[in-house]
Design a protein around this nucleic acid. Structure first.
Lengths: 352, 352
DNA sequence: ATACAGCATTGGAGCGCTCCAACAAGTAGA
DNA sequence: TCTACTTGTTGGAGCGCTCCAATGCTGTAT
């Protein structure tokens, strides 16, 4: 075969070739000729049709084996007007969260016989649009958009072209399935845990502009109010430096809480190191809960009590929702909100 | 369009459909009719051919816009006998290393107009084979195998079907390009750094069966010998628990070194926490160097001196090597060994 | 014998596109 | 005026496959 060589120009690319080296792979025609049957029969064999005699089936499979034949997925897709491709747009593969979600989708795809084709959006709406259009050019059976930042109407457009599932982004559109972590429930878990340990002065280090940060804040505030406690939100960010800074600010203000619900694990680790620098011990003097259950939290040295977001599960569910839609097994939208869980380690203890 | 619904059965899947809902997207034919030109002309416009009059070009583009037409990538590929698809087999997407390499490949692919189609191998040779065959069914322009565990002859077979680049796996085959991190050089950097700080009793916590562990060990031993020092290899693993355990063993044995070259960052963190538990301070009493420069190492609280493996760069180079081969710009194999770099933070200091 | 199943097999049209050879027009050179 | 060349446009074949209608085959009931 020849290799198309896309030009560096954006948009449609003029075809250029690799002139020599036309390593043509065998086609159905070749197999049919060698096996002494028609091309249609080979097609039937390749699709496991029950109405092929054992004798012919064997002849065809032998010929295919001998020639090293394997069906051309794109030709098959074109002729059958069907697709086994699922398009995945990842806003940021660099992010471990999305990598694990992709892993979950891949698991389902592999089990159900679909292939994944991936494009990344680079956190820019324009690039994300391009990425989605690139995926749609393959006429995928379905589309998964992980953490898209494009405006809602672009999502609606995509959903018109193929069944679409959204991850880490919600939408009320009935054409879109969504799978999200329940950030509010996660914060509530953290607060409940601390309250059950006797804490009543619990502050929240806020995630600022980070994704899911508003949900986590809302969940914290609601849970505090439910327990009849006064919420206290300290502005911060999703980094260890921000966590440390927020704690130093808290120390200056004087009135220290007895426990912290951090924006995420990095933020929690930063907070802890600032506390220790100030001579306070965790958990004896202050309990701290993180969020995300990253590999960091599990380290023996850190051993952070945190909220586990079922990332892989999110991917699996997104994959399943997509496959169901693709198969036409379901038409009503699915809006999944996954329940996070509390992982108790060594940074929380009963109020002394 | 209809959606192919792969059966759960392995092997070729009998076609089933979603009978209703044939959302047929416009084709070139439709655009041609609306614009009042031939199908061939539309094709020329879509491929930016210079020999189309401005008037017609505009008419075609307007018609395409109006119908929401976009070319069918698979049909194009089939007709032109060329491909813009790069197949990527990732042995383990869960692993942050590979996720970042994919990110690097994606960067190149996007810049050069290729699409990525990804399959995972799940660390099993059989599944990996299936994954590669699945990719080859799309007749990709090129193949990238990340950390493959299949036997060498399977690699050779793959390379016969499409230009192939190997990442995190070496091969002497001239048909295969390879891109690897130079683990030996990395360990040497760590040793040299410690020696320059005046250390002469430097032990290595070995990575055991972990990938790249043998290279790192060899590099450590060679560097020690180069400095005229006696190597001391302590069996361990790529986890924080194993690092802690190795240190406790070392403490029992009595004769402590003054510095440690850990198998990786997790191992180093484990080692540090065990040292601190034993009342030893890092770096005052013991210097420790990690490996990988994970996000963990960068945390202010950890601030680990470590070896940075240019993961993203590895991906970029792999992508570039592949594109060169695909374009036929190069036929001799490229065997890249990337130089890691030392990142000095707070866990190393001059011997007291 | 004829009819009519049922089954295995096949030719051919067609999926949406590319690309080549052929073809109109217009322009320039003789 | 005729040829030659350029420029823009088009019909048609064909990429590798699927799927339908049609075919030849047996075997069984009439």
């Amino acid at each position: 075969m020849l290799y198309r060589v896309p030009s560096r120009v954006k948009g449609a690319s003029p075809a250029c070739y690799n002139p020599e080296d036309l390593l043509t792979r065998p086609t159905m025609e070749d197999v049919a000729r060698l096996a002494g049957v028609s091309r249609a029969l080979v097609s039937l064999v390749m699709n496991d049709s029950p109405k092929v005699s054992e004798q012919r089936r064997k002849a065809v499979l032998d010929a295919a084996e001998q020639l090293g034949y394997s069906p051309h997925a794109m030709a098959r897709s074109l002729a059958s007007r069907t697709s086994t491709v699922l398009g995945v747009m990842v806003s940021d593969l660099h992010n471990a969260f999305f990598a694990e979600v992709v892993d979950g989708i891949d698991e389902v795809a592999q089990a159900e016989g679909f292939e994944l084709i991936i494009n990344t959006g680079g956190r820019s709406p324009a690039r994300e649009r391009r990425a989605v259009n690139g995926l749609l050019a393959f006429r995928p059976a379905g589309l998964a958009l992980l953490g898209p930042v494009v405006p809602p109407n672009t999502l609606a457009e995509a959903a018109e072209q193929a069944p679409t599932v959204l991850v880490a982004r919600s939408s009320r559109l009935s054409t879109l399935d969504t799978v999200n972590d329940d950030g509010e429930a996660g914060s509530a878990l953290a607060v409940d845990h601390l309250v059950s340990l006797g804490h009543d002065e619990i502050a929240h280090l806020d995630g600022g502009v980070g994704s899911q940060a508003p949900q986590r804040r809302r969940g914290y505030i609601a849970a505090m109010q439910r327990h009849g406690l006064a919420p206290r939100v300290i502005p911060s960010e999703y980094t260890d430096l921000a966590g440390a800074k927020a704690v130093r600010q808290l120390l200056e203000q004087g009135a220290l809480p007895t426990a912290l619900v951090a924006a995420n694990d990095f933020n929690a680790v930063g907070a802890i190191s600032a506390l220790e620098e100030a001579g306070l011990r965790v958990p004896q003097d202050m309990s701290v809960v993180g969020y995300d259950n990253t590999s960091l939290a599990g380290l023996r040295h850190v051993s952070l009590t945190t909220i586990d977001q079922p990332r892989h599960e999110i991917g699996r569910l997104a994959g399943e929702a997509l496959v169901q839609r693709v198969r036409g097994e379901r038409t009503e939208p699915v809006k999944k909100l996954l329940h996070p869980s509390l992982v108790v380690r060594s940074t929380t203890q009963a109020r002394s």
